[in-house]
Simulated scan of single mutants.
Amino acid sequence: MAKPGTWFTGETLVFLRNLAENNNRDWFAANRHRDEVYVRQSALRFNMDFVPRPHRISRHFIEDPRPVGGSLSRIHRDTRFSHDKWPFKAHAGNRVPHERNCDVYVPVFYIHVEPGGTFVGVGMWLPDAPMLKTIRDAIVENPTAWRSARDDRAFTAKFELGSAMLARSLRGCDPVHPRIDAFQRENFAAWHGFDGNTLTRDRRLDAFTDAR
């Protein structure tokens, strides 16, 4: 069992790997305690230690321990409209959200834990059309700030900015605007990958936050 004060361990990855191999309700019911100890409790402890770091940017980022709708994403998949009918996610999604995360599209800090695919993410993932317009208007108003953030050497050395683009800009955007690359972005999020050793052995928060 994970000791108080520890975050994710090798058992976290073992559980998620086992879940991928036994993705059914009977197996999960028999191993639910492992999810609670090695995923949920570890993720919430990580967030409690991590939250002071985003506060350097804004005091509005919070740790939300609610079992539903909080910082930790549900492990159950919504299979209603998916061809993939596996009932559970074989990864853990853990975020430090803005306090208004239930009301509007807002930035988040996110850690994705998955054997062979762990990463941290920052920014806005797939904001809706009104929020996209708000972001574009801000870029038009202050293009220097956008370029400075996008091209910052410390940022680009560790983070990869999402490359997903809309097929065309939203109505009202000039198709030959010099910043059309920003206007056609589908998201304003970036990520940085980690290996298993960093995830399970390195307890220095700087390993996760130096590239902020």
Rank of each mutant, 00 (worst) to 15 (best):
P97K: 03
D137E: 07
T144L: 09
P67E: 12
D137A: 11
D78S: 04
R179E: 10
E141P: 01
G93F: 12
R74P: 00
F119V: 01
A90G: 10
T144I: 08
I75Q: 02
E186C: 14
E99Q: 13
R80E: 12
G69Q: 02
V113T: 08
A164H: 10
V68C: 07
L166D: 04
R150Q: 07
I57D: 07
F155A: 05
A189H: 00
D152S: 11
I111S: 02
Y110V: 04
E114I: 05
R95L: 05
H60L: 15
G93S: 12
V108Q: 09
F159L: 13
H192L: 11
R77F: 03
A129N: 11
C173E: 15
F81T: 10
S71A: 12
P130E: 06
T118H: 05
K89D: 02
H83L: 13
R153G: 03
E186M: 13
I75M: 03
P67H: 06
E99F: 12
D174C: 13
L126W: 08
G193L: 10
V122A: 15
T156A: 07
I135L: 09
D64I: 06
T118S: 14
R59D: 12
D195G: 15
E160P: 01
F88E: 10
D84R: 01
W146I: 04
R100H: 14
W146M: 11
W125H: 08
H83P: 10
D195W: 08
D128A: 14
D103P: 08
A149K: 09
G172I: 04
R100Y: 09
L170M: 13
S169G: 15
V106S: 14
I111C: 05
A182P: 01
R56F: 06
R179S: 09
N101R: 15
A189C: 03
A138I: 05
P97T: 03
F159C: 11
P67K: 11
G193P: 05
F109W: 04
N142W: 06
H192I: 06
A92S: 13
A189W: 00
N101A: 15
V120N: 12
R147E: 15
L126P: 04
R74A: 04
L161A: 08
H55P: 01
P65Q: 06
R53P: 00
L170C: 07
M131N: 00
F61D: 00
A189N: 01
A145R: 13
R147P: 03
L126S: 13
L126C: 12
F61V: 00
L170V: 10
P65G: 04
F188Y: 08
A190N: 03
R95I: 06
I62G: 08
R153P: 03
V68W: 05
H76E: 04
I75H: 02
D78P: 01
W125Y: 13
L161P: 01
G116Y: 07
A90F: 09
R150D: 09
P97V: 07
V106W: 08
G116N: 06
C173K: 10
E63Q: 09
P178N: 13
H177I: 11
A167P: 13
P130M: 08
V122I: 15
V140P: 02
A92T: 07
G172E: 02
G116L: 09
R168M: 07
P65I: 09
S58H: 04
D137V: 06
F194G: 03
W125S: 01
L166H: 08
S82Y: 03
R56T: 06
V140R: 15
S169E: 12
S71T: 13
H192R: 15
N187W: 02
